[in-house]
Amino acid sequence: MTSMTANMNLVRSIIFLCVALAALAIAPFVMPAKAMTILIEFCAVLALALIWNVLAGFAGLFLMGFQVFIGVGGYVLFVTANQMGVVPFYLLPVAALGGGLLAVAIAPALFRLSGAQLAIGSWVIAEIVRLVVYHTDALGAGGGISLIVMRIVPRVDRLPLTYGAAVLVLVITLLAIVLLMNSKYGLALRAMRDNEVAAEALGVNVFWMRMAVLVIGGALASAAGAAYYLLALNISPTSGFSINWTATILFIVILGGIGTVEGPILGAIIYFALRELLIDAGTAYFIAIGTLAIMVTVFLPGGLWGLVRRLVPFDLLPIRKVAPARRT
C-alpha cells in the first residue's frame, strides 16, 4: 500500500516535470530575446529558491549567507573557463564542484551554531568570502571579472545555450529534490523538520543528513549561480555576494510557502510577475514586497501554495506519505 502511494507520488511528479520541461523546451521558439533573458534568470532563481527551501524548510539550515554559493559558482566558472579557454557551458559541473567543496569547508564553523544564530553566522561567512575576493587582485578585486572566453562562442548561439544551461540546472535541481524527498532520506528530512530531537531518537543521523543536504544544495546552488552569470557575462564581489540574492530567494519562499516543494515555484512566478509589473515603482516596490512578506508570514504561514492547497487538494510534486494502516 505504502510503496504503491510512493510510486504514485513519483509518477505524478514525473508527469508534472515532463509537462514543465515541454513548456520550457517550446519557449525559445515562441519568445522574443528579452523574454528569454528573463526566463533564464527565472530558471536560475527558481532553482536557488528550491534549494534554499529544502535547506531552511526541511534541514533546519536557514542560511542568510546563501549568496556565498552563488558568487563562488560564478567565480569558479569564470576563472576556470577563462584560464582553460574552454566553452564555458561545459564547466557548470566544475562550478558545482566548487560549491560542494565550499559547503564542506564552511560546515565546521556553521554547525557550531543552530537556528537563528546559524542564519546570521552564515551571513558572516559570506561576508568574509566577499571581502577576501574583493582584496584578491587575481580575481579582479573590486571590479570583478568578465567572461572573455565567451568570444569563442558564436553570438547567435549564446542565448539559446545559456537558456539550455539554466533549464538543465533547474531540471536537475527539481529531479534531485523529487527523488530525495520521495526516498527514505526525504522521510528523515521531514521528521527533522517536525522535531529534530525525536528524529534523532528514531535513528536519523541529523548531523550527516544536514551535511549531505548542505553539500548537494551548495553544489546545485553554485551551478545555478554560474548559469545566471553566463547570462550576465561579468561578476563582481558586490553583485555575486550580494545579500539581495538571499533577500529575493527568501521573498519567493515566504510568498510561495516554506517547507513545500511547489511553494517556491508559485512564489517565483509571482515574484517575477510583480517585478516586471512594478519595474517603474522604484523604492516603493521594495516597501510593498517587504510588507507582503510580513503579511504572508503572519496571516498565511503556509504561503500562497498553502492557500491553493486548501482549495484544491492536489499536489503537483507530492512528497506526503500515507501512514500504514494500524494493525489492531
Partner: peptide, 16 residues
C-alpha cells in the same frame, strides 16, 4: 523561522 521571516520583511521595508 517565522520571527526571522517577519523581521527580514521589516528590514526590507525600513531600508527602502
Amino acid at each position: 523561522t517565522s520571527p526571522l521571516l517577519i523581521t527580514f520583511g521589516l528590514s526590507m521595508v525600513l531600508q527602502s
